Computed example of a mutant assay.
Amino acid sequence: MDNLTPQDLFSPSKAREQRAQAADWAQIDTWLSYRYSGRTVPSFERNEETLKVLRELMMANERADEEVTMFQRVEREACKELEEDESDTRKKTRNLEDEKLLENIKAQLTVEGSAALHALASTAVVLNTPTANPETMAHTLIQHTSASQTLTNNLNHIQSLQRYLEKQQSLLRAQLNELQSNPAFATPPNLQRQTTEQVRQTKHLRTKIREYEDKLSSLQSAQSRNTTTPGSKNISSAEAIADMLEQQTTLNTLKEKVEALEEEVKEFTGLPADKEAARKEVGKLEVKLDNMRRRRDALFGELVGK
């Protein structure tokens, strides 16, 4: 790039050529730095001939590296195949020796011994033990027996639980059917009207109670005034007392009626205003009451059994 003239700076072909050479020199510098492994790269003249030689040298070096890598890979694969062949050969030889030894043992065994050997081998295969050692097989057999017993117990427990759930499901279905079909559990058709009427009567009676309480207060005030007057007014005081007692009796009667109505209204406290929703709520409460009765009977039965 030092040999560029002012005219070359405005030539597109020269600019492309200079960029290509700069990229080649960067690649050469990277390759030399890798080859010298951190050591200082010797200085040399940077011209086209040197670039051409270094480029050819780099390409030859890369081809040589690829050939060495390929040779090493082929060598490793060949060694692996040889090792596998040797391992297969040893296995085949060992298998043949084992088969010959087994045949010789079988030939020397009696009928009972052959049956015992076959039973031992079958047991080892079934238990999946790596060896036919009796102690190892015994431990494995104990483990299998314990696991089998545990699974059997769990299965019995699950079956019992399933039967219990099926029984409870049948009972719940029967109760649901009874609640839906039995007229005794049906909500009265005029429940909402009765509730409204009882609330209205309660308000009316409370108003009456306040009126009678006011009258009673007035009578008590009049009585207190009459007791301070001369004896000629004793007759009117006696009549006032009788009237007061009569009104007190009426007041007590009204209070009892109000309390009775309030108790009846309390039974419907919390029910929704809608008739169908009130019926459903009453049905739920009746189911809850039925369950509590069953629980009470069961507890009583347990106490009697004890």
Rank of each mutant, 00 (worst) to 15 (best):
L9M: 06
F10M: 14
S11G: 00
S13V: 14
A20H: 12
A23K: 11
I28P: 00
Y34M: 13
S37G: 10
F44K: 03
E45P: 02
N47D: 12
L51Y: 02
M58R: 12
M58C: 07
M59Y: 03
N61Q: 11
A64N: 07
D65N: 08
T69S: 07
M70H: 10
F71V: 06
R73S: 08
R73G: 04
R76A: 00
E77Q: 05
E77T: 01
E83N: 02
K92A: 14
T93S: 14
L96N: 14
L96E: 13
E103V: 12
N104L: 15
N104A: 14
A107S: 15
L109I: 02
S114F: 05
A115G: 08
A115H: 11
L117N: 00
A121L: 09
S122T: 09
S122G: 04
N128K: 15
P130K: 02
P134K: 04
E135H: 03
T136C: 06
M137C: 02
I142Y: 06
Q143Y: 09
S148Y: 08
Q149A: 04
T152V: 07
S160V: 09
R173P: 03
L176T: 09
N177V: 01
A184E: 05
Q194F: 06
T196V: 14
T196D: 07
E197Y: 10
V199Q: 00
R210A: 14
E211Q: 12
L216N: 00
S218A: 13
L219A: 06
L219C: 07
S224Y: 08
R225D: 06
T227H: 11
T229I: 07
T229W: 05
S236R: 06
S237E: 08
A242Q: 05
A242V: 07
L245R: 05
T249S: 10
N252V: 12
N252H: 12
V258K: 02
V258T: 13
D274G: 13
R279A: 10
K284D: 02
D290V: 09
R294A: 12
D297K: 03
L303Q: 05
